[in-house]
Write a protein that binds this DNA or RNA. Structure first.
Length: 215
DNA sequence: TAGGCCATCTGGTCCT
DNA sequence: AGGACCAGATGGCCTA
């Protein structure tokens, strides 16, 4: 279901899975920077072709009027502007690649089947949110049963899962418990044919190794 | 064909 | 001044 942009540059994340927070290093950003020119059209080209279209006009006037020093010709300024824009575009592209790398790393540690369709960005975030919540609940319950204590009051809000599922219920990760507009990954996963048949609620991870395990 | 998802560009804003 | 971050716009790809 989730689209796999064929033209888009592939993000390498395998090595990052071993890092606490992949993509955090500037080196990596720099490395990514040398990658892939845009596979699609570049509006910059259009802008260049149009020669700083009418959108730029007011700013140009401002620059001309307010310039403390204006040793540069219009041509030089235009060149400088384009150069700066190009650099900003590169940085923005790298920033987004970096963000996607982190997202891919996150996908890698979430319990899904290898042949499942790739989680979309929003699904990944929602799933991670619930997954963390469920793990927390499990830990808490295990803790208290070990010490023979009464189950504690829910820590996350008053009751239930972040999405409104029942507390401590692994199934809440995978079953559609959410109301419309909730953050539940389950809801969206349930809607996706490729993602049906979730891991066993009793042991989510053992039944579904992360993608990274198969790489 | 419509709708979802995505990558990219772009201009604005804030921060260093 | 320059970089980071953000949100809006745009267009491509894919699936139902």
């Amino acid at each position: 279901m989730a689209p796999h942009p064929s033209g888009a540059p592939t993000v390498q994340v395998i090595h990052e899975l071993e890092q606490p927070f992949p993509g955090a290093s500037d080196c990596e950003v720099t490395c990514a920077a040398s990658a892939p020119p845009s596979p699609t059209r570049t509006p910059l080209d259009c802008a260049e072709a149009e020669g700083d279209g009418c959108r730029e006009a007011p700013k140009r006037l401002r620059a001309r009027r307010g310039g403390r020093s204006r040793p540069k010709s219009e041509l030089a300024l235009s060149k400088q502007r384009r150069s700066r824009r190009k650099k900003a575009n590169d940085r923005e592209r790298n920033r987004m690649h970096n963000l996607n790398s982190a997202l891919d790393a996150l996908r890698g540690v979430l319990p899904t089947f290898p042949d499942d369709a790739k989680l979309t960005k929003i699904e990944t975030l929602r799933f991670a949110h619930n997954y963390i919540w469920a793990l927390t609940q499990t830990l808490r319950i295990a803790d208290h049963s070990f010490y023979g204590l009464e189950p504690p009051a829910p820590a996350y809000g008053e009751l239930g899962s972040p999405d409104g599922g029942s507390a401590g219920d692994w199934g809440s990760l995978y079953s559609p418990v959410s109301q419309a507009g909730s953050l539940s990954p389950a809801a969206s996963l349930g809607e996706r044919p490729g993602l049906r048949g979730a891991p066993s609620p009793a042991c989510p991870h053992s039944g579904a190794p992360a993608f990274a395990d198969f790489l």
